[in-house]
Design a protein around this nucleic acid. Structure first.
Lengths: 195, 195
DNA sequence: GTCTATATCGTGATAGAC
DNA sequence: GTCTATCACGATATAGAC
């Protein structure tokens, strides 16, 4: 009768845990780390605030769980950087924008961008991700001088575009089509990487 | 004996008010709006927390005062956009980076970037500034199609560069020279504006 | 002009009933 | 597994002494 559960939850129960986690991603993304309260997360998930602690422990623990996106730069970067070199810039922009079309990705992405810049909790997280996980992997696959600087410049343009489009929502970038942005921003990325 | 005061403070007194304001800019910039406490601002200014309220009222009032940078896009934008068209991109990048060399500007800038993205207090402020004050002024002086989108693209790259360099401090952009960044990013701006 | 003392509220977190 | 009740703390903000 009850729909079959995949491997995961041991006994019986409900889906409160996943609802709490989804609500946490949303609220952290809207108000940043300091600005969100356990009570609001609980309210949006339709549960009691105590249940949040019961499942996730402290607020910092919950944030770590919510921020733990299985981003796999070790698999994504090689995938994008291989293929015709002339279109790498366009492929990067398109990949990021299409990923953000998915609700789940966009919510987590906005949360990360907001909290990354907001204060001492998220900043080390994203700085570490950029400078240890992502940028070296990109730079390592570039056979050009100043590879690290080039990768960093790419990150700066991608980050700025995501900020304007998804976090701040400033028009007309916020309402532009993916093709349009690929056409405008793609050549920038291409130039940073290879010119 | 006491050094002469310019026009400004009426009677006698101290410089507590300006020290509080400077401390507020710093602390808001470090922890975002929600993350900063009146007590920390007071402590860093070397005064009591009650004095902060005495001068500035509520925390939101103090933030508004601290964020009230006399940015004058109405005078800066025409100044930069006039002059040889071929170097506009480089001039924009150089102007921004050189402005951020000044401690005062950089602190206020970092504060605005942090709080702008952090939550509901700063976001409307910067969105309004961008979409009402800055971008239309830039777009209005461009005699090219899609002027608004071009101005927005410029903003996205400038914002991303400032984020990486000053807010997150990710290397190597954080340690790059102004000339280096002008040479790399200037052509991007130029392309967004005129190509 | 400055600080002490305090009122009031909302937070994260816990213990324990059901 | 879920919620009620509550604790301990720190926050903003105010009243008033000096």
């Amino acid at each position: 009768m009850s729909k079959p559960r995949g491997r995961g939850r041991p006994k019986g129960g409900s889906d409160s845990r996943s609802r709490i986690l989804a609500a946490a991603v949303d609220v952290f993304g809207e108000h940043g780390y300091e600005g969100t309260t356990i009570r609001e997360i609980a309210g949006r998930a339709g549960v009691d605030s105590a249940l949040v602690h019961h499942y996730f422990g402290t607020k910092a623990d919950l944030f770590a769980e919510a921020a733990n996106v299985p981003l796999r730069p070790d698999v994504v970067v090689p995938m994008i950087l291989s293929g015709p070199r002339e279109e790498v810039g366009a492929r990067i922009v398109r990949y990021v924008l299409e990923a953000f079309e998915d609700d789940r990705v966009r919510r987590r992405g906005v949360m990360l961008l907001r909290t990354a810049v907001g204060g001492k909790v998220g900043t080390p997280l994203i700085v570490g991700f950029l400078s240890r996980e992502l940028l070296p992997r990109v730079a390592g696959r570039l056979d050009v001088p100043d590879a690290e600087l080039r990768a960093d410049l790419v990150a700066s343009q991608i980050a700025g575009m995501l900020m304007i489009r998804y976090v701040l929502g400033v028009q007309p970038i916020a309402g532009a089509s993916i093709d349009d942005l690929v056409g405008r921003v793609g050549p920038t990325i291409q130039r940073y990487l290879f010119d």
